[in-house]
Design a protein around this nucleic acid. Structure first.
Ligand SMILES: [Zn+2]
Ligand SMILES: [Zn+2]
Ligand SMILES: [Zn+2]
Ligand SMILES: [Zn+2]
Lengths: 376, 376
DNA sequence: CGTGTCCTTTAAAGGTCATC
DNA sequence: GATGACCTTTAAAGGACACG
């Protein structure tokens, strides 16, 4: 009837073409959504066409700079954590289980759960348990301070809450360790405890970075100490109160500073480059267990047991890359993941001193019998 | 085949029953999701059954405290901003337009756009324009500081960026004013400018609170100054640099402090209570224009023009409540919205001094001819 | 009315394929 | 092999209704 007025419509936040729906949490066109997903999946990063990473990203018939287009996607806040559902075609039909009734299937139609599924389930379950306990710890803490986060209740860590949540973390991760790697139950309790003692430090390291990225995205100011607490990296001195740490106070502060500085210098760049998915993180939770320092006196049959786990993880990881992610060439992703694995190993070796000291400190404060037993 | 192992499943974050899917962004059961939606829609708040707002919310056959259940929903981060799509049944079929082809329909199937749709469209369009210009302003600012936000790039406001973004806001809001209220084009330019001069302060006030809630949720530490910049309320003194503000520096600081303190005391509680949806915000953008101080010397025919807008908004608002929100009794929501409207009016009257001074300050810095013309 | 179960609808994710 | 148009599938939102 009347002439159509110039109604402003939504535009693609990446390339400015008109857009009808949201993709990956942001207003963008289907082409940019496809592009972002492919780039995330492949794991490859390209160089900027101009070299200065300042190309304008607009739909000017072909030749958008791939690096700058991807950077723009990250900048506007698009998120993609790997496929949500598994590829129907690729899945083999080993048995026709009658699981279609009321009980929810464990995300694939296969009869038994894969190792990555099991690790993921047990990890998330341990996080749920830790969250409940941390809520209680923080509820009892008089001077708790909320950190500004728009969607979650996150608190500033202090010495006391760090020690308490770490104790909870150790206890719950021990359960995770038992449930996620049941094959290790064939070893003696002593051997398992030795493995766990070497594991918990590496676990804490990768978990901290993983949770930080999950909770804070591209924000570099905070570092998650556990499920509900985080450290403000711009005022780390606030973490340790004047009366905390006893006679080791200054020493402790210096250790922590050097530990975190070097860790951020080593692990963070790798983690940013790898952009790992949740499933890859679950794989990492197993792979760091399987990297055992050859200088430590571990019997061969224990090494054989972890090698079995490593092989199972690699098999499942390849299946994940091929079937679920639909990658024909997954060498880049696997390479990134393995580099990350070795970086963590390296970082862990560098700071064994710190962790030994750490263990001593936490020993003084521990209340749980379980932990006393472990670190005696 | 084998006995089902005790696999941990997801639980309702509100009442702890097993849950199969997410609702409103969080893992919760369908009952809690329904409950949350109904409570959000109705706008009513109930008193806590025990009085201390500390009831445990668990599915123990009837009698969950409604207040504590709702509080828990907010706490875990559930979000609901009114129905996403319009009720098909309620919509009248005035014409059968051939719009079903390629051009996207303007969210309802009605031939012409309602006033709230128009205001919303023009408001969002003005925000898009401001975002582009603010990105440029901040790109040129040497000492810009990112505020930690997991999904958006938000910067800390300083005196310079505040002035610049305010100028952009005035210019773009003038366009919004013209496009959203076309009926006012029948008035003279002088009359429209007079209306706009009274409008811009109230606009800034409600927009600031609306954007703060949208960007920061329940976080009370930051207050959005414009689209991309915000003030850290825990160190407001950083906002004004040592050399900013000229001879009025201390006076200016004091004005701002008292202005913001009182505004937060008056407007914030109402806004938290009302929990307005986007559409209600659009209605408010019109309603605050229509509240004109009787002491000002505005001709009757101008008052008649804004009264026409007010009537149109009320009509559309009722249609929204009835048809889109499906409310049979919308008195609580409308009451909350009107209280908010009057609180803003009251707050505006209280701080006319501040804004007069404000205008003078911004006059000294303005570069756009448009603004010079307006505030001469 | 307020609640919770169940069914329908749809926005956004997954997947395919011709083109370069 | 990368791209983007064009289908197919599904998780989560809307809506109806029986119960108290
Ligand atoms: Zn695009
Ligand atoms: Zn480039
Ligand atoms: Zn529930
Ligand atoms: Zn209660």
């Amino acid at each position: 009837m009347t002439e159509t007025p110039p109604k402003p419509r939504r535009k693609c936040l990446i390339c400015s073409v008109p857009v009808v729906a949201a993709h990956f949490g942001m207003d963008c066109c289907r082409a940019c959504a496809s592009f972002f997903k492919r780039r995330k999946l492949s794991g490859k990063k390209f160089a900027c066409r101009a070299g200065d990473r300042k190309c304008l990203v607009v739909k000017d018939d072909k030749f958008m700079c791939r690096r700058c287009r991807f950077d723009r996607c990250i900048e506007v806040g698009m998120i993609y954590d790997g496929p949500l559902r598994v590829n129907k075609k690729g899945a083999d039909l080993m048995e026709n289980s009658p699981s279609s009734s009321d009980t929810a299937s464990p995300s694939t139609s296969r009869g038994h759960e894969s190792i990555l599924e099991r690790i993921g389930r047990e990890y998330n379950s341990s996080v749920d348990r830790r969250r409940v306990q941390e809520e209680r710890i923080l509820g009892e803490c008089e001077d708790r301070k909320l950190v500004p986060h728009p969607t979650q209740k996150i608190y500033l860590a202090n010495y006391r809450t760090s020690v308490q949540t770490y104790n909870v973390c150790v206890a719950e991760t021990l359960i995770f360790f038992r449930e996620a790697f049941p094959s290790l139950l064939e070893l003696s309790k002593q051997e398992r405890d030795l493995l766990f003692k070497g594991y918990i430090a590496k676990f804490s390291m990768i978990e901290s970075h993983y949770r930080t990225r999950k909770v804070w995205g591209e924000v570099k100011r905070y570092c998650m100490g556990s499920v509900l607490i985080c450290v403000d990296l711009e005022c780390t001195e606030r973490w340790l109160g004047e009366e905390d740490g006893g006679e080791n106070r200054l020493e402790l502060l210096e250790s922590i500073r050097s530990y975190s500085n070097d860790q951020f210098a080593l692990v963070l760049p790798m983690l940013n480059k790898a952009q790992i998915t949740s499933k890859e993180f679950y794989a990492l939770l197993a792979l760091v267990l399987c990297e055992i320092d050859s200088s430590s006196h571990i019997p061969d049959y224990v090494l054989a047991a972890v090698d079995e786990i490593r092989a199972e993880v690699f098999e499942d990881l390849q299946r994940y890359y091929k079937e679920e992610m639909g990658l024909s060439d997954f060498s880049t992703r696997l390479g990134n993941l393995m580099t990350l694995n070795h970086t963590i190993q390296e970082c862990n070796s560098l700071f064994q001193e710190f962790f030994r000291m750490n263990t001593t400190i936490f020993d003084l404060n521990q209340s749980e019998d379980l932990i006393k037993e472990l670190f005696s």
